[in-house]
Nucleic acid binder design. Structure first.
Lengths: 222, 222
DNA sequence: AAGATATAGTGTATTTTTAACACTTAGTAA
DNA sequence: TTACTAAGTGTTAAAAATACACTATATCTT
């Protein structure tokens, strides 16, 4: 036990709620815990902060180690610190939420987790710790942000059609949107660039393909 | 050194940016540090988390101990954890911002701080640690929230006139507002109750006095 | 008591934004 | 060639936001 302090110190972890769109559903990335406590339960990817590492870096590192997911958009969500949230010791968890586009993800569960998998938000398994609460808050924040930022675009692949974009908004907000009004709104953002190409996708008229200008930038709008 | 861990643990603190309206200005509550590091510098009230205490409780406790300010509205702001933000050891700071109405505050600096005082936001002294950054973020969040919540009402005394309320909004948003439009908007919130009384306050027509219904509740609006 | 002064209080017209709504187009498949 | 399907496109109505100026009621002065 080489690390000693004059006063008790809590442990600090980061946890990340990673969202992606798969099969036309909003899905969440979970890992199956390899150790106690909550061994074999599903949980958010995350882990202990190293002593000389930034909070953001910790979140990204743990995520990469446990799931292989790396290239994503991430924001701090909230810090949870209720004294009994972890049975081992006092743990403060700085939580993040993140979005990754379907074309960027390649799962490769690492050594710290027995398994990593995507779950539709409707059908989450029983979760470790207070992770259900973290997910609830992340989902709420994400839905709210669709109204005043371009954050939803972070779920899109590099190129997409307006109908695909609309479908993402409908899923996030959980409501049907008017096609003409949505297109007017989306184009007025001035963040969409026509590629010129079209996408053939069934027995109907092909759709124009768009690309996001400054793809990593999230604007606050309106 | 009785507290030992298998892995290094950071220290965890809370810091609170407390805003109030004094002399028609938005002011911030600071304490003068009694110890190194940054001895004698001004800083946000805050301090180390006790091992069995909630984050919120810690913020409130430190605030009360250092400044005597107790009855206020508080929200978590952001967690800062850059590895070198404190020269002593690794410190994660969970920050809060808070609003207190002028009629509720009675400063009584405690033992941990040599001194506590209010500063107009325009004229802050040099600050300890990264507290200037925390304040900047808190100020930004506060201004943003005036647009979609009733948070600004937390700065009001128990009773107030519509002109006083408007003045608070003008200070927070840092812009002049139209009197008639503002009054229409404020009354439409359905959170104001006429007291029937009037306030005499100079050589002019006295103003109706209002009270906030459900004074501790902050609504998300629009 | 008459007049000056200062903030309280009030309504309407215009502009902007949002919301509702239906048909034509261009492909594929039978 | 015809049926099918999603893509694409404008206008009108309603609601919300904005711009704008005078009257009311108290105090203070002379």
């Amino acid at each position: 036990m080489p690390f000693q302090y004059q006063y008790p110190h809590p442990a600090v972890t980061t946890d990340v709620a990673v969202f992606a769109l798969r099969d036309q559903q909003l899905q969440l990335l979970l890992i199956r815990r390899a150790r106690e406590p909550y061994k074999d339960r599903w949980a958010l990817p995350g882990g202990f902060l190293e002593i000389d590492e930034d909070l953001d870096s910790c979140a990204k590192r743990e995520l990469a180690e446990e799931t292989g997911v790396a290239d994503l958009y991430m924001e701090q969500l909230y810090t949870f610190g209720c004294p009994d949230r972890d049975p081992r010791e006092r743990v403060i968890s700085v939580t993040y939420y993140a979005l990754v586009s379907a074309d960027k993800l390649s799962l490769s569960p690492g050594s710290d987790a027995a398994e990593a998998a995507w779950f539709p938000l409707q059908r989450l398994p029983e979760l470790a710790f207070d992770h259900a609460e973290i997910i609830r808050l992340a989902r709420e924040r994400l839905a709210a942000k669709t109204h005043y930022s371009t954050i939803a675009f972070q779920l899109m692949p590099e190129t997409f059609t307006l109908s695909e974009l609309q479908s993402v908004y409908e899923i996030l907000r959980n409501e049907k949107l008017d096609k003409r009004n949505f297109r007017k709104w989306a184009l007025a953002l001035n963040r969409l660039e026509e590629i010129g190409d079209k996408r053939r996708n069934g027995n109907h008229r092909p759709a124009k393909i768009y690309r996001l200008t400054a793809p990593d930038r999230v604007d606050i709008i309106r």
